[in-house]
Every structure is written in C-alpha cells, then in structure tokens.
Design a protein around this nucleic acid. Structure first.
Length: 232
DNA sequence: AAACAGTACAACCGCATATAT
DNA sequence: CATATATGCGGTTGTACTGTT
C-alpha cells in the first residue's frame, strides 16, 4: 500500500453523496486558497474526503464556471461532431463547450446520445457508424511530453526543407482559429457530400502528411499537436 | 399503494502522465 | 536517472428519482 493510500485509510474517508455542509466547507477552502494542491484540500477544509473526491466535487459541481441545465441543440450538435473527431476524449470536448464539464458531457452522451445515434444509424446507413476516431496521444497538454519530444526529434531529423514545408502547412495561427477551421472544414465537406464520413475528411489530411514524408504519426496526434504548438 | 424497471447523474476507481525529489 | 508523489482522465458503478404495471 502506498503512503497516500495508507494516509487515506487512516483518516477513514467519507464516501458517497456530498452534503450541503461539505459543499460549503469545500467552497470556502477553494475561495481562500484557490484551486489546486488537492492533497491539502481535505485538511484545509476540514473534510473527511479524499483529494480526488474534493477535486471532482469542485470541478463537476461547485465551480462557479459550471453551467447547469439542459444542453441546447447547438451544444448537442457540437458534441456529436467533436465526438466524431475525438472519440471519448471528454475533457477535450468539454474544453470546447464553455461551462460544461467532461463528466456532464460523458453522462449526457452515455444516457442520451448513444441511443439517439444508434437509432439514427439503424434508420439510415448502418455503415455510417464505422468511423476512425482520431486519438490525440497525451491526456494532458504538457509543454514537453515525451511522445512529442520523440515525434519532434523525428521531424527534426528530416531534411530542413521538409520541416519548413511541414510547419508552414500544419502549424496553426492559434488554437481557436485552428479548431474553427477544422469544424468549418468538416461542415463544408458534409455539405458537399451527405454520405461522406469524417474518416474521409481526415484521409486527405493523412495523405498530405504522408506526402510530406515526415515519418510521424500525424493521424494520431495532429489534433493535440495543433493546440500544443500554439501554446505560448 | 407497492413492486419493479428504466433513466439520469453524481461519485468512485484504476491507470497514465507530469512533476518533484 | 530512478523513484515517489500529485494530478487528471475515462470507464464504471451506485443510487435517487420517475414512470409503469
């Protein structure tokens, strides 16, 4: 048993639904000390909860940034589209929906959209549900993740001319416009061909990448890469 | 009214990754 | 560089609530 687990075991942490009193304590603690340092939060707040529980409660329920209530049609539309692109990367999807948490979106997806989409698929073309999901590798956007270092070194080892081409074509101006253009591109293609899937949209990008012979797995981490490269 | 089934969502758990020592 | 610790994520579970029989 790790030290952390030992500590949590000794304290006899509470589990289950949060009470109003606990919420107040947690809120006061975050207001006083700010977010982060979750390990210290139970102690500071005087809560018999584990750090994870505190963090989750704050991020998914107490944080003032959270918007509650029904998902609008626009939001649902966006979730569906982003899920086509990203798969179950709920935190990334949530990042594009201000005020919505990854947990909310995940729950909404699992309880509403899976059924809805399944029925749509059955009604239309059953094959349309087969799509390749682009999975960015890192779960958190570190400035120097190992997977990126490796990939970058691979790129750097290519002839300079090639690098210049790649960066010129692939590096976005900023994350927002990059996402917007990505969605716009998908939208455009959908309009052009109602039967084409998102897979086809990205096949083009993949071919472009292959044509550049960068030797990197662009299809796997292109999405996150765009965000990382634009991070100051 | 009681029993049961289905649904929605809050919360937990295990794991991967980042960061500190 | 190796190890320990902290953080964040996605999958899954538990349970309160609602509708149906």
């Amino acid at each position: 048993m790790s030290r952390l687990r030992e500590e949590e075991h000794l304290i006899a942490v509470r589990k289950g639904a949060w009470t109003k009193e606990e919420d107040i304590l947690l809120r006061k603690c975050i207001e006083k000390y700010g977010e982060g340092k979750w390990r210290q939060v139970p102690l500071r707040a005087g809560l018999k909860r584990c750090r994870k529980s505190c963090r989750l409660r704050w991020l998914n329920y107490l944080s003032p940034n959270i918007r509650r209530g029904e998902f609008s049609e626009d939001e649902v539309e966006l979730i569906i589209r982003l899920h086509k692109l990203l798969g179950n990367r709920w935190s990334l999807i949530a990042g594009r929906l201000p005020g919505r948490t990854a947990n909310d979106i995940k729950n909404y997806w699992n309880s509403h959209l899976t059924k809805r989409l399944a029925s749509n698929v059955n009604k239309s073309n059953p094959k349309s549900e087969d799509h390749v999901i682009i999975r960015p590798k890192p779960r958190t956007a570190s400035i120097h993740p190992n997977w990126l270092k490796e990939s970058i070194s691979m790129v750097e080892n290519q002839p300079k001319e090639m690098n210049r081409t790649w960066t010129a074509q692939k590096q976005p101006e900023d994350s927002t416009s990059w996402w917007q253009s990505l969605l716009a591109e998908v939208e455009k293609r959908e309009e052009e061909s109602a039967t084409s899937s998102v897979v086809e949209d990205f096949e083009g990008m993949r071919k472009e990448a292959n044509a550049l012979e960068c030797g990197v797995e662009l299809d796997g981490w292109l999405l996150e890469m765009g965000i990382l490269l634009s991070t100051p």
